[in-house]
Design a protein around this nucleic acid. Sequence first.
DNA 1: CGGCATCCTTCGCGATACTG
DNA 2: CAGTATCGCGAAGGATGCCG
Lengths: 122, 122
Amino acid sequence: MKTSTEPDKTQCNAYIHAMEDALYVIGGKWKLRIIIALREGNKRFNEIQRAVSGISAKVLSAELKSLESNGLVTRNVLVDEFPVIVEYVLDDYSASLNGVLESLIDWGVGHRKKLADENQPK
Amino acid sequence: MKTSTEPDKTQCNAYIHAMEDALYVIGGKWKLRIIIALREGNKRFNEIQRAVSGISAKVLSAELKSLESNGLVTRNVLVDEFPVIVEYVLDDYSASLNGVLESLIDWGVGHRKKLADENQPK
DNA sequence: CGGCATCCTTCGCGATACTG
DNA sequence: CAGTATCGCGAAGGATGCCG
């Protein structure tokens, strides 16, 4: 607690800072899309690449490592011989993102609806 | 509605697509920070720049225009003579983002807490 | 005061090819 | 199948200066 005369400024910075923390982990073009793809079930590397259209193997590889290091995704090696088989699984911790995902998806749907209504006012 | 055998895949794509719509409008490094800054009250250009630390005038200008064109922010010219004075105001529509903002901020706070706990397990 | 112009850097991302 | 290596583009962003 503080007795300063500018509590708002402090609050605002705290909010912005929390947002930065969040975006550092789940920001960027791909991370949330990958998580959404994995929500419909565990997937192999190439399956994710197909589900998240447009992502390259290099980027997908990097994103998965990042998600793994943040405890959101787990990498399971199913077969460790030549045609290696790997499966990616959402970690329990990823459930903590449900609120974020749902509100973002909802807002996206609503915003698209709003744009459509503005173009077809009737 | 469809009778396909792969409703999940369709659902997943719809979710990802809605997310893309949302991120197109509020994604990127700065937009949500600017909105948070404006939530504590209307601000002038330079005030926003001070509140959102690190943003340059050029980028702030571009971001404000983008937010304006999406109906999230309104630009009010208070004085139109030489030392021009402009005020930026959150539009009513921006309230629709409250859920997104709160869940992101919450998650950021929680995630930081989680990291702290992992480093100080005792 | 608000904000555009210019120049420059950074790096996220993409395409293609290749390997265990 | 699951990635890595290489190359390189292009957009986003930073620094500085100027102008109404």
